[in-house]
Amino acid sequence: MKYINLNKWLEKIEKSVNVRGVINWFTLATGFLYGEFDDRLDLRSALQKVLKKPVPKHINFWFCFGGFTFLLLVINIFTGILLLMYYRPTIDQAYDSIVHITNNVPFGWLVRGFHHWAANIMVITVLIHMLRIYFHGAYKHPRDMNWVVGVCLFLLVLSFGFTGYLLPWNQVSFWATTIGAEIPSTFPVAGPYITYLLKGGDSVGQLALTRFFAFHVVILPWITIGLLSLHFLMVRRLGISGPL
């Protein structure tokens, strides 16, 4: 059997160029100083313990949707921060700034498109994730607490959708928010007060836009990050549920 002898000419190159130095600089620059940190803190063995955890044999495609949702969340956080660079949360300028992002800012259409589609697909993936957990009975003791946290996260995704929908400040978002805020008004006793609070007055206006914006970009993300950490910690602690 003939083997491919790469090492021979790799060694030749290594002798002529300071490959080690180049690689060190590369890791220093690109790998978040990984090499230098590893040298001092022995990150490799620590990371291997975390990342090389074996998963059970029965894992299949349907177990991936929690991960897909997380990926979409990361995309949404990233593109959301980029959109914040241009968005203006006032009723005079909100719509104009959205048009500005889409039409004038280089790659603005792409950033906004990613935010829009990732947000929409996230609702689907989170639902599939939930159905998988339900039909596998993975919500049962001892994972029942994680199910509760998961349901809260699902509601958070919907709240993100609801608050984010108002931000472009066009006709659709205005009326969707008006309708959404009217729904609690049928609740007994507290209903009209909840509607009043959600609308920030008698009709959806600047106050509602400012508050929805604050919820969408500051309050909900931090609650989500907190609950998500709990969610992941519990998954790690309890492991993945057994096969059907």
Binding site: L82, R88, D96, S97, V99, N104, V105, P106, G108, L110
Partner: peptide, 24 residues
């Protein structure tokens, strides 16, 4: 991917005649 998205990101953030003025 890293190079292309950094390029797009930098283009997105870099102020130009079109973007610096803004919608006002």
């Amino acid at each position: 991917t890293a190079v292309l998205s950094s390029y797009a990101g930098l283009r997105y953030l870099w102020p130009t005649e079109k973007t610096a003025g803004g919608p006002g």
